[in-house]
Design a binder for these strands. Structure first.
Lengths: 340, 340
DNA sequence: TTGCTGCTTGTTAGCGCTCACAATCTGCCA
DNA sequence: TGGCAGATTGTGAGCGCTAACAAGCAGCAA
């Protein structure tokens, strides 16, 4: 900066003003300085700037399990939104969300002077650990539920599950079975809850819940159980004709298990998923599912975080993003209501 | 730090030495200082540290298309490796790899004083643009090929394709068809090349290449063409009995198209993919594919980058990671060689 | 005792930037 | 012509840390 000032024949402060778009700089000086900056390829040192302003303009992202479609897309959305707002983001990916790992990640980020943290922590234990930790900066959760008083953003999982369940009931199924995700995931919980509420409100039976771990394999195993039940109850009463699986990957496993058992989808058993991964449209058969708007989720979470950082609010607001139902062949309408 | 020094009754420099694990500090002083640090919850300011040492200990990651399985996993691997080595990483995700976008991303990172950049740029155009740009710091490419003199790491795509092709030939197929990825992706190119070389060396016919864009939809369309060809040539000579699809997502589309055309996999047409996405094991039928070790890729790229940053080398080394063949039902062995 | 070595600790001077304030320079009116 | 407001530019200090050097102190041989 001193070099630029010398070459341009002004003081270093004037150069600083030009870089900061300060209003009181004459057009002539500004042009001259800009040109010298260009010519020298000068770039302002962000460490010194951070030191002087006490602002690092850096945000941290803590995410668990970024190999899954949901978290991965969310993190991408968050990073993009932060970049648009002029912040640097640094992401820390954890394999498991233990309190220790979270604390360590937070230390790591705090050590680099992040001004805020977006935590993509869909597990109940993770949010609780997060709430227990005393953070060195504002923290916003994504998919962290709103039970604890951390500000956050999430998709309306409950509504998504209701949409799916209502869609299946409206398609002529007497009731809808459910393959849930791990019980410690809030998303899983909310989806199960939405499903159950819808069934109760419609006066339908609430079958027992099968549980997987989001993986295709666990879906496959659940699917085998479902298939066994269908075959065992053939010819008797209103049986198992529709399944709402808590994510698309498990739905893929369910579809395979049903197929192997000789059951057709949707004729024998209709199947719906959740997430709308890119592959869902090409499953055998194409999967009815819920699409989430991850870009919105990212934008909203960054917006909320910056509101806290820049002191515009200090409430624990919780924003909710609406889901979208995507109907495909796996839940094609039944011609006659299930009565068999 | 001054506070810590005052409370501990030492100079700020001693505190600095304790934090930096300097050897010449007495055990007693060290313990006392450590305790005060703990008690005061002191954390050293990284901006000031960066300013004084002229090292930011920050690395940048530039990635294109992180929604695809490969790039996403690679980025995760890179970030984890960097964190293990004590570096902060900041990722910039681009939607398209134009020269402008790359230059901008680099400016963004340079502005924050990154000491090196890992570029996950599997497209030919992106690497070329990258090589043309004069970077403000060392750059290492991942999956960027080794045609240009940028140091880099990649999976041996060519070998992977050979393994798949040889596996299919060894399973009794007269030749192997190929659905390639976009022609401007280096990975795509290398896979096609490996496939073609293997066929030529084996003296097999080299059928025309079909091309997709990695998406399941494009695979589906390619699959329809393949199915049409199989049906048209029924009963005549050695036909189309095996397909190597350049990634698993497209393979899913191909499988669907074949199924819709009434063709069985692997009995009528064997199908193999590339990537081993978690879903591949549950495709109808489970997919033979190539697994890539993304963690290694990440570790190696960070290792290479740090070698450059810390001045241990300045060559444009290119590391190659070995692929692994995963055989599943989609390419089950033909009992009799294809002669029909 | 003197003088030397080796360990431990303190002092000083920046790193490159921004902030608060001071100084200068315009233009314009009395 | 003097004087004053407002725009523009310059000056000095300090953000929190580390590097380089200086100083103090023990232990030991001559």
């Amino acid at each position: 900066m001193t070099d630029v000032a010398r070459v341009a024949g002004v003081s270093h402060q004037t150069v600083s003003r030009v870089l900061s778009d300060h209003p009181n700089v004459s057009a002539k000086t500004r042009a001259a300085v800009t040109q010298v900056i260009e010519q020298l390829g000068y770039r302002r040192n962000s460490a010194a700037r951070a030191l002087a302003t006490r602002r690092t303009h850096t945000l941290g992202v803590i995410a668990v399990n970024t190999t899954l479609h949901g978290p991965a897309s969310t993190v991408a959305g968050v990073q993009e939104a932060a970049r648009d707002r002029g912040y640097l983001t640094s992401a820390v990916t954890l394999r498991t969300a233990t309190q220790t790992a979270l604390a360590e990640a937070m230390q790591h980020l705090a050590g680099w002077g992040v001004e805020g943290i977006v935590a993509v922590t869909p597990q109940r234990a993770a949010v609780r650990a997060l709430a227990a930790l005393e953070a060195p900066c504002p923290v916003v959760t994504v998919e962290g539920g709103h039970t604890l008083d951390l500000p956050g953003v999430s998709l309306d999982q409950n509504l998504g599950a209701r949409m799916i369940t209502e869609h299946l009931l409206a398609s002529g199924h007497a009731t809808v079975w459910h393959v849930a995700g791990p019980s410690d995931w809030l998303e899983s919980e909310a989806r199960t809850q939405g499903w159950e509420e819808t069934l109760r409100e419609a006066g339908a039976d609430v079958p027992p819940v099968l549980r997987g771990d989001w993986s295709p394999l666990s879906g496959y195993q659940a699917g085998q159980q479902l298939a066994g039940r269908v075959l065992a109850s053939r010819g008797r009463g209103a049986g198992l004709t529709a399944v709402f699986v808590a994510n698309d990957q498990m739905a893929l496993g369910v579809l395979r298990a049903l197929r192997e058992a000789g059951l057709r989808t949707p004729e024998d058993v209709a199947v719906a998923g959740f997430d709308d991964i890119p592959e869902a449209e090409f499953f055998p058969p194409p999967l009815t599912t819920i699409r989430q708007d991850f870009a919105s989720l990212g934008r909203d979470s960054i917006g909320l975080l910056l509101d806290h950082i820049e002191g515009r609010t200090d409430e624990s607001t919780h924003l909710v993003v609406a889901p979208e139902l995507i109907v495909r062949a796996s839940t094609a309408r039944r011609i006659a209501p299930a009565a068999e």
